[in-house]
């Protein structure tokens, strides 16, 4: 089994009275794309900041490439490519100056790859960053993060606020990075269809806790969406094991369940429900079922 690129163990973090992370543990292995999913303010950016050493792990531990990113900032940051949520770049630099400056910090900088990306994105090297639109800033930041062929690509909300063309560019860069040997990518996103399309492995965070983790295909095969028709209108459904959420549309209910579908069918049958359709749930449906307002999964 390949050595873990990232190991987070029982990481907790509090800001004032808010618990941003609560006993979070996860591992990241090379060769895979990891999707980090969660609602706003649930801990995604806090987790990513811990991986970069921008926050010191006060409870629990964080290891990137086997090292503590706070104690070994040089070794860790050299092998990581990072695009921040705010696209934080020096406003006064030109794009070519930014790339030239970043290149000095990463010995594996590939200038031909950087030039190729510049041309694909259609960016003018001589423009200053403060003159760029949001999408172009993301593109410039992405080139700076990916051109040195990092072992770990960390993208915090890379597609937020960007048009479809730029989003495709970003996904393309992620694929190209991971296609090389021994690389991994972690990207957090609100756009669940993107995560569904582009992840091998998913981490779902809610209120600082990891509520779901696993191989994406397995998750989708496990979670099913059932359309259930009742003879009489039901106000509420009694709690049934493995049912994550239940939404009512007239006489039909949409139920998302995890795992034992047959058992759920039988339980529903007992209370007079007939399952008219079964299919695998999409990531969006799983997400809303687990952390949305109709969620019945009250994991303390």
């Amino acid at each position: 089994m390949p050595e873990n690129m990232v190991e987070v163990h029982q990481l907790s973090r509090q800001f004032g009275t808010t618990r941003a992370l609560d006993g979070l543990s996860l591992e990241v292995q090379p060769g895979l794309v990891y999707g980090l999913v969660g609602a706003n303010g649930q801990g995604k950016t806090t987790l990513i900041k811990h991986l970069l050493g921008l926050l010191r792990a006060k409870q629990g531990s964080v290891r990137v490439f086997g090292m503590d990113p706070v104690k070994h900032p040089v070794n860790v940051l050299q092998r990581v490519g990072y695009l921040s949520e705010e696209r934080d770049l020096p406003e006064w630099m030109r794009i070519d100056e930014l790339l030239r400056y970043t290149a000095a910090y990463h010995p594996k900088w590939d200038q031909s790859y950087a030039d190729e990306l510049l041309e694909t994105f259609g960016l003018d090297k001589a423009r200053k960053i403060k003159e760029l639109s949001k999408g172009m800033r993301a593109q410039a930041g992405l080139i700076a993060a990916a051109a040195h062929r990092p072992e770990l690509l960390l993208l915090d909300e890379p597609s937020t606020g960007l048009d479809a063309v730029v989003r495709k560019d970003i996904l393309n860069v992620i694929i190209r990075t991971v296609a090389d040997e021994g690389r991994a990518a972690i990207f957090s996103s609100h756009l669940l269809d993107e995560v569904e399309q582009m992840s091998d492995y998913v981490f779902m965070i809610d209120q600082g806790k990891l509520v779901l983790r696993g191989n994406l295909d397995k998750i989708k095969e496990q979670h099913h969406l059932l359309s259930v028709r009742f003879a009489t209108s039901q106000e509420t459904l009694p709690p049934i094991d493995d049912v994550l959420s239940a939404e009512q549309h007239g006489k039909t209910w949409s139920i998302v369940c995890n795992g034992a579908t047959q058992k759920v069918r039988e339980s529903l049958g007992e209370i007079g429900g007939e399952v008219t359709q079964t299919r695998n749930a999409s990531l969006q449906e799983i997400f809303v079922a687990r952390v949305g307002r109709n969620s019945l999964s009250l994991e303390e």
């Binding site: 060769g31 895979l32 794309v33 495709k168 996904l171 393309n172 694929i175 190209r176 991971v178 296609a179 399309q197 582009m198 992840s199 091998d200 295909d217």
Partner: peptide, 18 residues
């Protein structure tokens, strides 16, 4: 090739491998 198809479809190389 795996890489080309992954870039074309915008899915992870691992998916193509599978």
């Amino acid at each position: 090739p795996i890489r080309t198809l992954a870039e074309q479809l915008l899915v992870t190389p691992n998916t193509i491998v599978k």
